[in-house]
Amino acid sequence: MAIAHRSNAQREGASAHRNEGIAFEHLLVGEEGTKDNFILTVVTTEDEYKTPRHRHNFEQIRYVLKGEMQYGPNHIQKEGTVAYFCEGVHYQQKGSDGSETLLLQFAGPSGQGYMSQRQLRAGAKELQSKGSFHDGVFVWGEGREGKRNQDGYEAVWEYVNGKEVRYCKPRYLAPVIMDPQSFDYVPMRGSDGVAEKSLGRFNERGAEIRMIRVGAGVDFVLKAPDRPLVVTVMSGEGGADGDIYGPLSAWRVLRGKETRLSAELETELFIVGLPAFDD
């Protein structure tokens, strides 16, 4: 297991398929081409950043660390809240100046996987020979049959994959926004000094969001019995499997594996159980 830290994260600006005013610090990436590929990144936006109304064939979880994000007139995500975006749900984005969001993107229950950032950026660059991007929309050049305007991400996905994207009917009709402060920690049975709060478990593949608090001086074994876990440290310091961690350190626990933590300071972990694709 390797622990990633924000201080050495890979940094990138906006991809060609979206507007400027957004930047990325990639903490963790999965395996390109696999059904359970994913990416964990810290996203910074400015006031100028916005997208058209769109949807995806993958899922997202967003934890706003600073500022706020707007996803439409009735969906504003405030600092300190967590949002789950199911596959196929429509939304748009409007940034706020200097907002920071912990963003996890991963495969939806339809099992179409998640296109890597490398594929996305290379595909967007190549696609510009066939048209141009404007305000998050790809405008096809002359000679294309059917509609000329297409969502930028959708156009890149179809170009990279060589087929038409398909969207499942959304299981939730809007982004689900949760306030972790409204949930209580419950002591974990058999683990003195450790408590847990469950924020939700979604769809038949079981994407799950929870938080764990480990007291100072406490040792704890975090297990991933039935699905991979993506773990982010929200606060605290300590060690995990011989490496050190601090705020916004992150790692993945593979299915059937475990991580041994020793908390020097009280530690709060944000944990997402990725969908299980047993078939």
Rank of each mutant, 00 (worst) to 15 (best):
D226C: 14
D226I: 12
D226W: 13
R227P: 02
P228D: 14
P228L: 07
P228A: 10
L229I: 08
L229G: 08
L229A: 14
V230F: 03
V231I: 02
T232V: 05
T232Q: 06
V233S: 03
M234K: 13
S235V: 09
S235K: 15
G236V: 01
G236Q: 05
G236M: 04
E237R: 14
G239K: 14
A240P: 05
D241A: 12
G242V: 14
G242E: 13
G242Y: 11
G242K: 11
Y245S: 04
Y245A: 03
Y245I: 01
G246C: 08
G246E: 12
G246K: 09
G246V: 05
P247G: 14
P247L: 13
L248Q: 06
L248F: 06
A250F: 04
W251D: 10
W251H: 15
W251P: 05
R252C: 15
V253H: 02
V253I: 01
L254T: 09
L254N: 13
L254K: 13
G256E: 07
G256Y: 03
G256V: 02
K257C: 09
K257T: 08
K257P: 02
E258M: 09
E258L: 06
E258H: 11
E258V: 04
E258P: 02
E258C: 09
T259K: 12
T259Y: 10
R260A: 14
R260P: 01
R260V: 07
L261P: 04
L261I: 07
L261T: 06
L261V: 07
S262P: 00
S262E: 07
S262N: 08
S262L: 04
A263L: 01
A263E: 01
A263F: 01
E264C: 10
E264H: 11
E264N: 09
E264L: 12
E264D: 14
E266A: 03
T267R: 00
E268Q: 15
L269R: 00
L269A: 02
L269H: 02
L269N: 02
L269T: 00
L269K: 00
F270Y: 06
F270W: 04
I271R: 12
V272W: 11
G273E: 13
G273F: 08
L274G: 04
